[in-house]
Structures are given as structure tokens and as C-alpha cells.
Simulated scan of single mutants.
Amino acid sequence: MENGNSHGHSKYAKVVNRLRAAGCVFAEEEARLLLTAARTTAELAEWVERRAAGLPLEHVIGWAEFCGLRIEMDPKVFVPRKRSEFLVSQAAALARPEDIVVDLCCGSGALGAALAAALERIELYAADIDPAAVRCASRNVAAAGGQVYEGDLYDPLPVTLRGRVNVLIANAPYVPTGGIEMLPSEARIHEAQVALDGGEDGLDVQRRVAAAAPLWLAPGGYLLVETSERQMLQTAQIFVDSGLIAQVASCDELDATVVIGTRPVFPE
């Protein structure tokens, strides 16, 4: 929708005021997105009210901006966070053309799609246990030339990938069960609990990912997971206990922490 004239400025101001009143912190930026994406005045009005009611902006407009890509989004699917762009950049620095890349707990498939866009000719596979996420990821990952599977972690992946994966990324849930009630309502109410809940200490899924990683990684292959600064030493120890060489990378600007595990080329 056009908003370059005085009528447009008035409409923009009304949207900003409505979003501000609803408690949207980035009201100006969101108003611009809503005005640009809405095709009709009626659609704009409906979208503004849905956003004001607490629905994530990305679920309202149907896409999320991630690593410069437009990632298609569906209701209830985990919205990729800006901080996860750091995980993508770390993985991209380690990957090589024609590598086999697996995106576990893929959600919308944003991380795998972004990695495919950053690299040349990777062989991309993704998996998630949530059927809604798989439906959403299928569109984003297929556009990147990859394949998506539905199931629990490694279970649905082709067995032919065992011992051949060069880069394994997993933005596994790492919020402790008791901390979910403290999340912003748009995450707590509008995203699938399975995408948020990491168990009692937040690290249950990471443990399972790391434990099986050496079976799937090629010698010298990498596992990268996002974690919190508070949990990073525990995550690194989980990697070590699973037989991986662990290192931690962090980015203050994005408030992002990634633990990188390498499968030893000559296991002890």
C-alpha cells in the first residue's frame, strides 16, 4: 500500500499509535512493514488488530526477514530470531562447497535456507518433530534445493547420511521448562511449546543431539548449537562428554552464543 502522501502519513501515524498502545516496542518499524505488506485497507486493519492482540508480526504478514532472506512463516511455527544469524555465520565459515549439511529442530527451515544461500552447492537436509514446522520448512528448504523430514531429531533422516554429515546445525530448544512462563506472551502463546521447552535445565534436547552427533558427523565434521551465555559451559561439557572437541563463540551485538563441536579425525 502507498503511504507517501499526507493521507498515507496519517494512516501510518494511526497504525503506530495503535501498536504503541498495545505495547509493541518497535511500533514504527512494524507499522512500515504492515503498510508495505498489506494489499488493501481492510487487510491492513485486520493485520493491525491481530498484531495488537499479540500475534507475532511474522505470523501476521506471513514471512520473516532472516539473513537478508524472506522466510515464509505459518501460524504456531517458531519465528527465527535475529541472534540465530550468528549461528549461520559461524556455520558458513566452516562449511565448504558440496558439503552435506543437516538442520535439526529446523522450525521454519530458516537456518538451513540461509546457509544454502550463503554457500555454493551444499546438500541440505532438515528435520523437525512438529508437523506444522515441517510443512512450513518444506517451502523454505525446497526453495534452497533441500529436503525436509518429519520426526524426532535424527530418526527420520536417511541412514545413508550416517558418518557423512559435514556440518550439523541445531537450534534446539534451550529454555528451561520453568522459564517458559517468563517468555514474552507472543512466544509463549503463539509458538509451539516443543520449539521452546528444553526440559528441566533447558539442555535435554542438546544432550540428545550431541550424544548421537558422532554417529552422523564425518570425521572432522562440525556440530553447532545455539545456547545462552549462562548455559554455554554446560553445553560445551555436554559436547565433550559426547566425544566432540568443543569451543564457544559469542557475539555481543546479537547477544548470541554458539557452541561448536568437532568430531575428531582420529577418535581416541
Rank of each mutant, 00 (worst) to 15 (best):
H7S: 12
G8V: 06
G8R: 06
G8C: 03
S10G: 05
Y12E: 11
Y12R: 15
A13E: 12
K14A: 10
K14V: 06
V15N: 06
V15R: 04
V16I: 04
R18D: 12
L19F: 02
R20I: 12
A21K: 09
A22D: 01
C24F: 14
V25W: 09
E30S: 04
R32M: 12
R32C: 11
T36F: 14
T36E: 15
A38N: 03
T40D: 10
T40R: 13
T41E: 15
A42L: 15
L44V: 02
L44Q: 05
A45F: 09
A45M: 12
W47H: 12
V48R: 07
V48N: 14
R50N: 08
R50V: 00
R51Q: 03
G54L: 11
G54A: 03
P56C: 10
P56F: 08
L57T: 07
L57Y: 10
E58K: 07
H59R: 05
I61H: 06
G62S: 09
W63R: 10
W63D: 03
A64D: 04
A64M: 07
R70L: 08
I71M: 06
M73P: 06
M73L: 12
P75E: 04
R81D: 06
R81N: 08
S84R: 02
S84W: 07
E85Y: 11
F86A: 02
L87H: 09
V88P: 07
Q90W: 08
A92F: 03
A92L: 05
L94Q: 06
A95T: 13
A95S: 10
A95R: 03
R96Q: 15
P97A: 13
E98W: 13
I100N: 02
V101D: 05
D103S: 08
L104W: 00
C105K: 03
G107W: 03
G112M: 03
G112H: 01
L115S: 00
A118I: 04
L119F: 03
L119E: 03
E123K: 14
L124E: 00
Y125K: 01
A126M: 00
D128L: 10
A132W: 13
A133G: 06
V134I: 11
R135I: 07
